[in-house]
Structures are given as C-alpha cells and as structure tokens.
Design a protein around this nucleic acid. Structure first.
Ligand SMILES: Nc1nc2c(ncn2[C@H]2C[C@H](O)[C@@H](COP(=O)(O)OP(=O)(O)OP(=O)(O)O)O2)c(=O)[nH]1
Ligand SMILES: [Mg+2]
Ligand SMILES: [Mg+2]
Ligand SMILES: [Zn+2]
Length: 579
DNA sequence: GCCGTTTTCGGCCCGACTGTTTTCAGTCG
C-alpha cells in the first residue's frame, strides 16, 4: 500500500462520519473515539504497515477495536464494519451532512419520516413544504435549508483560506472593531493564531463594554456578504469572498479565558478542561472556577489559567493536541526561539520585482537590531534577475555603505541563484565565488518528477558556493503545489555539505512547511529564518518564519540566525564543508 | 470506542444561537 497512513486516516474519518449518522448523535462517544484515533494516527511518524495490533494499541487513543480495524485494513484492504456502514448509509446520505445547519439528528428524521435519501429528495421535500409537517421543524427551517442547499449547489463546500488571505482580513476586522467606543481589546484567535497555513475561518476575540455596538459594527462592514448568527456574545458573518468570520465578545476580566477557548485547538481545550475537572474545577470561555460554588480561580490572562492548572503558558502554535500539554507538564516544551538578528534573503530594486532601495532596506535592518544582512537580489537566470555588471555595481555601493556603518551591522553582498532543471546555477563558479553569500532556489520546472527534483537540489547543494537552499518546495499555499522531493535525501545532503535550509517567512510560501520541518527535526540540518522581503516593510515577515519553526517544535539550536550573535557570526564566517 | 493511584464500569468539555417549543433540541464553535 502506497501510503498506509493516509489510508488509515481516511478509514477512521469515514468510520466517524458514518457512525455519527448510524447513531444519529453528534456527540456520540464512539464518534469521538474514532476522531481522536484519527488525530493520534496523524501525528504518528512510524510506519503503520510494520506495526502489530499490540503495538498500535500502545498509541494513546487507539484501543483493541481500532487497532484491529487498522490491521484489517492494511492486511486485507477492507474493514468489515466500514463495509457494513457503507451499505446502510450510502454516499448520497453522507452528502446531506454537507449542508450547513443539517446534522445527524435531522438526517435521521428526514430519512425515517419523509424518506429523504439524497440531496434531490431533500429538494423535493422542501419544494412541497413537507418538512414543516415534522415536529421540530417549521417554515423558517425550510427557508434556511433551501438557502443552504442552493449555496451548496452553487459553490460546493468552500475550501480553506490561505493564511496570506486570512491574516489581512483579520487585521481589517480587528481595526474596525477597535474603533468602537468601549472596546478594550481585539485580536485573532483560532487556527490563525496557531499559525496554521490555511484556516477554516477567521476567529476574533474582543473585550468590550458595549458588545452590541461591536457586533453592529462587524455586520455593517462592507465586506460582509451575509450574517449567519447574530448574538451579543457571538456573531458569525461570511465575507464576499466566502470566508467565515466568528466574533466573540467578553468582559475585560474574562479575556484570558476567552482567548484560551477561542484559540483552541478543540482537542487542546478538551484536555485542559479534563485537567480542570480532575482538580474539582471547571473551565469555560469565561473562567476557570470551582465546580462547587463557582468561585473563580483565574480568568484574566491565559498565563494565570495555565499556571492554576500547573502548566507553563503554552505558545499558540503548539496548541494542536499533539502532546504539548504532557510536554509542558514535564517541562519538555521546545525552547523559545530567540530574537532574530540577521536576514539572509532580501531583495532591493536591483531585482525586477524588488520595490525598496538598498538604503531603505539597510536602514530597516539596522532599526531591527540586526547584526548581519545579506542582500540577495535575483541572478540572471530568473525573470526578474540581473547580470554581472549590475551585481558588481551593487557590490560597490554595499562596500561603501559598510564603511559608513562600522561593525554594528555586517552587510553581505549576496545573490539568489536560480536552480536549473539539472541543478545548474547562474554565472560561472568564479563569479559566484566573488559573492559573500549565495542562496539557491527553484523558480521553474515545477513539473519534474520526484527523483529529478531531488537530484537538481542535491546537485545545487554540492556547489561550493551555495550556503542555503531557499523556499525548498517552491509551493504557493492555496495555489502552486509543492514540488515532489525525497526529503530524507535532501536532509542527508544538507548535513553532508553543510548547506542550510531556509524557513521562508513570506506568507504565501511558508517554505519549508511545518510538515517538512517536522520531518527535519531529527536531523542535524542548519535552518535559517528569512523574510524574502521585496520591500523594506516586509523584513518583519521573518516573524512568520519564527512561528512556522515554533509550530514544528524546532529546537532553537538548529537555527543559525536567532539568539546569540556569536552563533550567527560563526555561521556567517564558516566556510562550508568541501565536497 | 477508550480509559483508569480517584474508576476495569461509568464516565467522556462546555456554552451561544436559532427555531421550535411552552421548556428545549439541534447544530455549531
Ligand atoms: N471547548 C471547545 N472549544 C471548541 C470547540 N469547537 C471549537 N472550539 C474552540 C477551539 C477552536 O480553535 C476555536 C475556533 O473554532 P474553529 O471551528 O474556528 O476551529 P479552528 O479555528 O481551530 O480551526 P479552523 O481552521 O477554523 O477549522 O473554538 C468545542 O467543541 N469545544
Ligand atoms: Mg477557526
Ligand atoms: Mg470559528
Ligand atoms: Zn527571493
């Protein structure tokens, strides 16, 4: 089986979905068990195909029954229970659940009492106004379902929103909310705060005296297409582009509890709430309080709530229910990544797509307290790249600026080389050697196969001038897929040649991805955080790279350009291992 | 279906909003 993990995940998710229909209960504990088993499998790195039922059972959230189903799937390609459920609940039934506002109870009832077996059946029932005859349904239910059905027909189920789109949207909404008198705080939470590369929606938490005014301001924004729910504690809208936005408003003294709740993840919340219960307390979005009597223990800040639960504050990027609570308890969370003190991927107007002068970029780097800045405009092999003369002219300017700067900030005259389809690089070896810093990255030929892509990058790494590979996968989140790579081979080559790998903080890229970085954790590869700025205002994108590394549980020691200047300067001066 | 120095049986996170209902069920976050 090509990808055992993927197959197991699909099986467990389907079991969860079908069981929910089977039991007609959204809160079914069996469903939750399947879902948490899927979550457990997701974070498994071991090869499932090689694991026995006994070994599988050792994984938390997987018991005897699920372990046997996994083995059954991997050994025979089929799972009896799943086949049985598929018989009872065909795909046309499952499709009904895609409709907003229609859950397992309603599906069960529609099927039993009106014989609805498909979206088409439902359409008929709605057109004939048969639904309102059912207990618990009325004219409004018909109207809402009709609309939801029409939207599903039109756009299908809308996909997730890339973080590069969601973040500016969140900031616009937050800015508007902060204008409302009596508003004390507004910030994004949910998967966006956890720095997920795509988000299902935008979640915004607000502390305010006048909740009604906040909600009114939100639903009145021009970007609003429609209002899903409208309450003073919670309001949801959908933007014209189709992204949902959830807003929660609480009182100032409840902000910590609300941020904690709304940042999630759901699994993280549930684990914290279980932990509270074990201490005789209860946790909700307003406070951590005593079960008996309701005396509030903590609510103002996240840190206070974690502390009361016996835990250090956990960075949002780690709150994925991936063992972070257990690690926090043991004091085994990854170390915090220090201040970034250098950038090694920055463009100026010398690149066709650069929009800031060398002077502006350098001034910004200085203001940020950087110790090293590599200017890395595009080489001639890239569409927006330049030839030798322009590079030499830029070098003169950089040398002159260095003389004026003194030694507080070291400027490196660098270049972003293009990696050709066979790993070939720009200019010639002699000219490349004349640069202080070369990074190399893929900008085209995305269609090559896995072996070809791997080979071209490994070849580039073997060039004695290449110190770093930029945006390894060349993906655009929500757009261009990543090139196919044998990551293990890439990491081995990086270790052997001493070539660093970039964590590119441009939001549409976030490359290396969290997924690739997690695979890299066990390897001795040097990582470098960069902004890939094309404007001096974009130097702060390196903070995105920090979040991405954090989310992947990267050990700060692996990162060359955050923390102490000694480490950074040593890496900068280091001659790479000869190949 | 999973899990256990509080349990091997009986729990499993907790609440807002809507539409239906005369007190709550369903869906969603
Ligand atoms: N305690 C609890 N919290 C929940 C539950 N569902 C959602 N939350 C909290 C945690 C989530 O991170 C937060 C926002 O919910 P979302 O559905 O928007 O999920 P999230 O932003 O994590 O992921 P997304 O990218 O939007 O799919 O609300 C739940 O069932 N129980
Ligand atoms: Mg969300
Ligand atoms: Mg949400
Ligand atoms: Zn670049």
């Amino acid at each position: 089986m090509a990808d055992a993990k993927q197959d197991v995940l699909e099986m467990l998710r389907e079991l969860a979905e079908l069981t929910m229909i089977e039991e007609g209960d959204p809160q079914s504990f069996r469903v939750r068990a399947y879902e948490s088993a899927a979550h457990a499998i997701e974070s498994q790195s071991a090869d499932l195909a090689k694991m026995s039922a006994k070994e599988l059972q050792k994984v938390e959230g997987i018991g005897k029954s699920t372990a046997e189903k996994i083995r059954e799937l991997l050994d025979s390609g089929k799972v009896e229970k799943l086949e049985m459920l598929r018989q009872k609940h065909p795909a046309s039934i499952v499709a009904l659940l895609k409709i907003q506002g229609l859950g397992p109870k309603a599906v069960k009832k529609l099927r039993a009492e009106l014989g609805v077996e498909s979206l088409d059946d439902l359409r008929k029932v709605l057109a004939d106004h048969k639904l309102r005859e059912l207990k618990g349904f009325g004219a409004k239910s018909e109207e809402k379902l009709t609309q939801a059905l029409a939207r599903l027909d039109q756009q299908g189920s809308v996909g997730r929103t890339p973080i590069s789109v969601a973040l500016p949207l969140a900031n616009r909404i937050i800015a508007r909310i902060l204008e409302v008198p009596g508003t004390i705080h507004a910030s994004y939470c949910g998967s966006l705060r956890r720095f997920s590369e795509t988000v299902g929606d935008v979640d915004v938490v607000v502390a305010a005296k006048d909740a009604t005014a906040v909600m009114t301001a939100v639903i009145s924004m021009p970007l609003v297409d429609r209002v899903l729910v409208r309450g003073d504690a919670k309001t949801s809208i959908v933007t014209r582009r189709g992204t949902q936005v959830d807003v929660r408003v609480v009182a100032e003294h409840q902000l910590g509890a609300a941020q904690l709740y709304f940042t999630g993840s759901k699994g993280h919340n549930i684990k914290l709430r279980q932990r509270a219960l074990a201490k005789g307390w209860t946790l909700n979005e307003y406070a951590l309080s005593e079960l008996e009597g309701g005396k509030v223990i903590a609510s103002e800040t996240e840190e206070q709530i974690y502390a009361a639960l016996g835990l250090p504050w956990i960075p949002p990027a780690l709150r994925e229910d991936g063992g972070e609570i257990e690690a926090a308890e043991r004091g085994a969370l990854p170390g915090r990544i220090g201040k970034v003190i250098g950038d090694f991927h920055v463009h100026t107007t010398v690149s066709g797509d650069g929009r800031s002068s060398l002077e502006d970029v350098v001034a910004t780097a200085k203001a940020r307290g950087y110790r090293v800045l590599a200017l890395t405009d595009h080489a001639e092999g890239t569409v927006s790249g330049v030839g030798r003369d322009a590079m030499l002219a830029q070098r003169e300017r950089i040398r002159a600026m260095q003389a004026e700067l003194g030694d507080s900030l070291t400027l490196l005259h660098g270049v972003e080389l293009n990696i050709g389809p066979n790993g070939e690089l720009d200019y010639d070896l002699e000219f490349r050697k004349s640069f202080d810093f070369c990074l190399a990255s893929v900008h085209d030929h995305f269609e090559l196969d896995r072996a070809g892509q791997t080979k071209r990058i490994v070849t580039a790494m073997q060039d004695p001038t290449v110190r770093m590979i930029g945006h390894l996968s060349a993906r655009m989140i929500g757009g261009r897929p990543p090139i196919e790579l044998d990551l293990d081979a890439i990491f081995s080559a990086a270790e052997k040649t001493g070539t660093a790998l970039e964590i590119n903080g441009a939001l549409p890229r976030l490359d290396m991805s969290v997924e690739a970085l997690r695979q890299c954790r066990a390897r001795k590869v040097t990582l470098v955080l960069t902004s890939d700025a094309h404007h001096h205002d974009e130097l702060d994108r390196v903070d995105n790279a920090v979040r991405n590394a954090e989310r992947a549980w990267i050990d700060p020691d692996r990162i060359a350009n955050a923390g102490t200047p000694e480490r950074l300067l040593a890496w900068t001066r280091e001659k790479r291992a000869s190949v």
